[in-house]
Deep mutational scan, measured.
Amino acid sequence: SQQIATAKDKYEWLVSRIVKNHNENWLSVSRKMQASPEYQDYVYLEGTQKAKKLFLQHIHRLK
């Protein structure tokens, strides 16, 4: 749906803004993002596993 696509774009923007180093780990980054509406919306719509998967894809691109 359009809502999910929009939430994903915003979440990816948030991840790219916060995660600048491929050594970052999911636990510390997800804690930093918990207060962000972009993170909350995406997790609400798609779940934590998908959020983690996108985070890991971003990390992989930074290597």
Rank of each mutant, 00 (worst) to 15 (best):
N21T: 08
H60S: 15
E38M: 06
A35I: 05
I18F: 03
I4F: 06
A35M: 10
K63S: 10
Y42L: 03
G47A: 00
H58S: 02
K10T: 05
E38F: 12
L62C: 00
Y11R: 02
Q34H: 08
M33P: 05
R31W: 09
R31G: 10
S28R: 07
K53D: 14
K53V: 12
N25L: 06
K53H: 11
M33W: 00
W13A: 15
H60N: 15
Y39D: 00
G47L: 03
V19W: 03
N23R: 11
K50F: 01
P37I: 12
N23Q: 12
G47V: 01
K8P: 08
V15S: 00
Y44N: 15
T6M: 12
L54N: 08
D41L: 08
D9S: 14
T6Y: 12
A5P: 08
L56S: 01
N21C: 07
S30A: 09
I59Q: 09
R17L: 05
Y42T: 01
Y39E: 00
P37Q: 13
D41I: 05
F55P: 06
S1F: 09
R31T: 09
M33V: 05
Q49M: 12
F55M: 03
W26H: 03
K53A: 14
F55K: 03
Q34W: 08
V19E: 02
T6V: 14
H22I: 08
K52Y: 09
Q49W: 06
D9E: 15
E38A: 11
W26P: 00
K52V: 02
L54K: 01
K63W: 09
A7L: 07
S28F: 07
N23V: 05
V43A: 06
P37H: 11
W13F: 14
N21W: 01
A51P: 00
W13I: 14
F55I: 05
S16P: 05
H58M: 08
T6K: 10
S36G: 03
L27I: 12
A35S: 14
R61W: 08
H22M: 09
H22N: 07
A5G: 07
K10G: 04
W26E: 04
I59N: 03
H58W: 08
Y44H: 15
Q49T: 13
S36N: 11
T48A: 13
Q49A: 13
H58F: 11
S16L: 05
S36L: 15
K32V: 07
P37F: 04
L27R: 08
S1L: 09
N23K: 13
K52C: 03
I59S: 06
N21P: 04
Q40Y: 04
Q57D: 15
K32I: 09
Q34F: 05
